[in-house]
Nucleic acid binder design. Structure first.
Lengths: 260, 260
DNA sequence: AGCACTAAATGAATGTCATTCATTTATTAG
DNA sequence: CTAATAAATGAATGACATTCATTTAGTGCT
């Protein structure tokens, strides 16, 4: 079946030749999403573009870098619930199905975002500062970046690094830092994983509501816990930060002992 | 609008009086989902029950304990993707909308499951063993329980304990254990949170694919990391277990130092 | 006993999504 | 020049969670 009788007024539509060299191959290079320059579409300004004709446009409207940028923009503006394929398409002024010429699924979009965010993690102290200091700044930065992106954590945890070049680059830098600090080669990966596990878990804490430990009506039956919660509240700094600092320093001194 | 002309052959349907005392109040008691006895429905056997008549049945078909049990059964059989409200309803031989008389949302179902699982975490060593040993068995048990239920972690992390009595009970036991071991009251909650963060993060690791660190074609550009991955693979035990052990022992000795 | 109210079912929408498919148009390889 | 491929559109499709009107059964009050 499939009867599709439909007249549409043929409207020639503007030629739309933007001045940009085709350059950027799309399938081969694995998303060098670093610099946001690519895939313009200005964003603002085109309020009410005339409906685009069907068929391949002369210059591609989409590429991975542009999709990544738009996804981040959408996430920042509306949160992860607001990140829908339809919304992303609208942001890019494109039909939803067009996205599937560039990514295979929504998960792919999340991967692009994840890899971009990882490139924001600060690894600059490895090589220039003592191991303890380098790990400390890396860990705080890593936690801070992903605290605002916890929905990505389940994705990262199971993500083969092959699919995420920036992530792989971070591991390389950190691994070298651990090796140079005297870690035995067989322990490097396990140690990094231990730090990462703590970091991801701690990222969730940041998003927890203030009253998460309010025992409410059950306070009577949980005296020790209730008292501990109350006395903790006077401590300085956000609770999530206090716990992170505590655990991080414990890991740094505990794992640091593995060095030769 | 809403025209609903529809004849249905009136079929008396079996009286369905199951021998069980009504007992169990549903709204008041906050889910004592411990023993799975409640809300039978056998599971197997009733292949093709005659369609039930609309309207309130003489004996309630659903309660929180039954929903919890069925949800767990479904999760074990089909995973979290298989846990849908429709599927859960089918498991309980009930219309999907019936569930909403007992839970407000799917999230509520996840909360019931979470709280039940928490009751499976082993806290028995607190009070009977040295702090180090008690924490160790608690942490391993906690991680193992939730490794099979990582989709709950985002829920737990933001869950006010008020809504989860078993979870609160666990915190009470653990808090007392920390206090008895000599932890200053103001540090107890932060310390527990630090352990928990590590535990949740580590639960994800368990589910990671074997080849997660395979750097594939990028191996050349990541020599240190690639070498570290290779040399780690000869280590004993599952990688996730090795990392967990390493981090846990570091936390135990690091945080243990806080005691007076 | 009668009556209003509430609890617990059914069944039929609803609305939101991700994803797929046929079709159209443009570019590129042979 | 022609076949293949790439990149759009627009119209389904199929899961889902959730809501609503309706039906039936217990409960509390007078």
């Amino acid at each position: 079946m499939q009867v599709t009788t439909r007249e549409r007024p043929v409207m020639p539509a503007v030629p739309a030749v933007e001045g940009r060299t085709a350059g950027n191959g799309s399938a081969t290079s694995v998303a060098a999403a670093g610099d946001g320059a690519a895939a313009g579409n200005g964003g603002a300004g085109n309020g009410g573009t005339a409906r685009r004709r069907a068929g391949r446009p002369s210059a591609a409207l989409l590429d991975k870098a542009g999709i990544t940028t738009a996804a981040l923009e959408l996430i920042n503006r509306k949160g992860y619930d607001g990140l829908t394929m339809a919304g992303l398409a609208k942001e890019l002024d494109v039909a939803p199905s067009a996205l599937y010429n560039h990514v295979a699924s929504k998960r792919d979009v999340l991967l692009l975002v994840e890899d971009h965010l990882t490139s924001l993690v600060d690894v600059s102290d490895f090589g220039s500062s003592p191991w303890e200091d380098a790990v400390r700044s890396w860990a705080w930065s890593y936690r801070n970046v992903f605290a605002a992106h916890t929905p990505l954590i389940p994705v990262i945890a199971v993500l083969p690094v092959t699919d995420a070049p920036q992530t792989l680059a971070m591991y390389e830098t950190v691994s070298k830092g651990f090796l140079d600090a005297g870690f035995p080669q067989e322990r490097v990966v396990s140690s990094i994983v231990a730090f990462e596990s703590f970091i991801f878990g701690s990222a969730y804490d940041v998003t927890a509501p203030e009253d998460i430990f309010d025992s409410g009506s059950m306070a009577d039956s949980t005296p020790h816990f209730t008292a501990a919660v109350r006395s903790a509240s006077s401590g300085a700094g956000r609770p999530a930060d206090v716990a992170f600092e505590l655990g991080l320093e414990a890991l740094i001194s505990g794992l640091g002992a593995l060095r030769g």
